[in-house]
Design a binder for these strands. Structure first.
Length: 569
RNA sequence: CGGUCUGUAGCUCAGUUGGCAGAGCAGCUGACUCUUAAUCAGCGGGUCCAGGGUUCGAAUCCCUGCAGACCGACCA
């Protein structure tokens, strides 16, 4: 990057960098800088009576400065938080040479630089716990100005709030918006809490393929890629279910994976093309057991994060206290539409959809129709955690038929805030039934349902060896994090949400500019009016072209006694 | 994919009827030894998203494009 493209503030910072080097200060030192305290720890534990923390070393980013002649206050931010520092000229520079204060601290350092300090903790006249600096080390010179967010009386001024910039430059977002960091700390705590719980139960964390020859285990459109040396297409997984079940066949009695899945579908505030799902499979259990297990997970996560089961989410308070109500899908539809769908044919269901004003198309089978009714009329009503159970067999091709009614399956979804949070079954382990269900999916696919499942022959082969009765559950981690951190958008719980590529800035000359350059090459300097006439450009086009050229420092306009001239640079 | 809105200094944002490009913070110069949105005096900083059109004249009006936000559609 040339100097012309840098803003004034960037140039000044580069100059300061150079001056630091001239003073013999390495702006990017290699040596370990060992700290012995953090900002929040000091603020929590310092007391004037005990007069502790009299020899502290900490490091962090300079976030604000208040310079007053021979003494200054500033704030540094470490990974825990911020603390004020007090820098006194004659104490930082005990000898005659006051360069470290007058030049380095006051002039050459900027907001955003990373420094290390040694000193002692004290309380200012205003009562703020601060660090009296005795020694200062430059650890990193920052070359770009940070957005400056200020705060007073809980009111935030000049917030860095542009969503696009926050997501594209998450590192800046994390530096200046402390609430953002908090969301991601909670996200990791959610995952750790779940992992801890599963390990207590003795379940085994595993990894399964992301590149799959057959994208199975869910109804969704996959991303496709290509393996060169095998010369075959491969798909990015849409789910890991079929692989985890193979492991249950293999003899593990509980396996789980925190998995990135990929779906080639629309993006909005609740959907990112890649997202994280926790899937767990436990042998010798059924979906009823899994319901209790699932509600325990939610309760435990809520307690770990908030110390209470009640969590604010938008205008609602969600209470994750167990147990949660269990409502069958048929009951749910009856409650919110008045129609009893049990035992109805595909034709009758189409009629019901028509009467309810639900849009349908011919490719939809019985299961999809019921799914539409539930999605349109019922789903959004379940704000508090609720299990919806016993889905129709057509929409659950991997689920065991219900032990009491073969039209239904042993499946539940956990609804929270009107959205699906988890999905679980008594897993289908009858290989012949499973083959028939796959074939039914194939027929749906031929009818035009582009989300119907492929037939995975190897998975069927595994089931033929025999899988114990098993219950499996998948939970959306992004969605759970949104619920637990009161985040309205999935982009707020992903460090790097998918974005359209940034537009490239081209410095290529336009056609008009090129034409003027050609003329200038034949004669330079030249009268401005003569050049303008030769170019044959309109006033506006001429103006754009010549301004463009001077901007790029390819030509310049000079005025002398004879008039205006244009000259090549 | 459709509708609405947005794009101006490093950040947050004004910009009237089309008539010299603005403020606060940040930056620079100076003053100031307990400040905290520090204060005081002075100064600099712009591809007004890009391209085209209308006009004597466009940040402003029109068209096209790009990027984003929100709401729908689709989906988890």
């Amino acid at each position: 990057m040339s100097n012309q493209e840098l803003s004034e503030q960037q140039v000044i910072r580069r100059n300061s960098l150079q001056k630091l080097r001239e003073l013999g200060i390495d702006p990017y030192p290699a040596a370990e800088f060992r700290v012995n305290a953090t900002s929040t720890e000091i603020k929590a534990n310092f007391s004037e009576e005990k007069s502790n923390y009299q020899d502290v070393v900490l490091a962090g980013r300079l976030m604000s400065r208040r310079i007053m002649g021979k003494a200054s206050f500033a704030e540094i931010q470490d990974y825990k938080g911020r603390i004020q520092i007090y820098v006194n000229r004659d104490e930082l520079c005990t000898g005659e040479d006051k360069t470290m204060y007058n030049e380095v601290f006051k002039k050459l350092l900027d907001i955003g630089d990373i420094i290390g300090i040694k000193g002692f903790v004290f309380k200012t006249q205003m009562g703020e716990i601060s660090i009296h600096v005795k020694e200062l080390t430059v650890l990193n010179k920052s070359l770009r100005p940070l957005p400056i967010v200020k705060e007073k009386d809980g009111k935030t001024y000049d917030a860095f709030s542009d969503a696009e910039q926050r997501y594209r430059q998450r590192y800046v977002d994390l530096i200046v918006n402390p609430q953002v960091k908090d969301v991601f700390i909670k996200r990791t705590k959610i995952i750790n809490t779940m992992r801890e719980m599963f390990n207590e139960y003795g379940y085994f964390e595993v990894e399964t393929p992301i590149l799959q020859p057959i994208p199975g285990g869910a109804a969704a459109r996959p991303f496709i890629t290509h393996h060169n040396s095998l010369n075959i297409p491969l798909y990015l997984r849409i789910a890991n279910e079929l692989y985890l079940k193979r492991l249950i066949v293999g003899g593990f009695d509980g396996v789980y994976e925190f998995a990135k899945d990929f779906r080639n579908e629309g993006m909005d505030r609740t959907h990112n093309p890649e997202f994280t799902v926790m899937e767990i499979y436990v042998a010798y259990k059924d979906y009823k057991w899994m319901m209790s297990f699932t509600e325990q997970i939610c309760e435990r996560v809520a307690l770990a994060l908030h110390g209470t089961t009640k969590v604010q989410l938008g205008e609602n308070i969600i209470d994750y206290k167990t147990p949660y109500p269990r409502v069958t899908m048929t009951e749910a539809i009856k409650e919110y539409t008045g129609y009893d769908i049990s035992g109805k044919s595909e034709e009758e269901l189409r009629e019901i959809c028509d009467k309810l004003g639900i849009e349908i198309d011919p490719s939809m089978g019985k299961g999809k129709l019921i799914d539409e009714i539930f999605g349109e009329k019922c789903e959004h009503n379940y704000i508090q955690p609720t299990f919806i159970t016993d889905y129709p067999v057509e929409m659950s091709p991997l689920t065991k038929k219900h032990r009491e009614n073969p039209e239904l399956t042993e499946r539940f979804e956990l609804m929270v805030n009107g959205k699906e949070l988890a999905n679980a079954y008594s897993e289908l382990n009858d290989p012949i039934d499973q083959r028939e269900r796959f074939e039914e999916q194939l027929r749906l696919s031929e009818k035009g349902d582009d989300e119907a499942m492929f037939i995975d022959q190897d998975f069927l082969r595994a089931l033929e060896y025999g899988m114990p009765p098993t219950s499996g559950m998948g939970m959306g981690i992004d969605r759970l994090t949104m619920f637990m951190t009161n985040s309205p958008s999935i982009q707020d719980v992903l460090f790097f949400p998918q974005m359209k590529p940034e537009k490239k800035v081209t410095v290529e000359l336009t056609e008009d500019e090129k034409a003027v350059m050609e003329l200038l090459k034949t004669q330079s300097p030249v009268y401005l009016n003569e050049l303008k006439e030769k170019s044959g450009l309109s006033n506006k086009k001429w103006d754009k072209a010549i301004k463009g050229l001077t901007k790029h420092k390819l030509a310049k306009v000079e005025k002398n006694d004879d008039g205006l001239f244009v000259e090549l640079v």
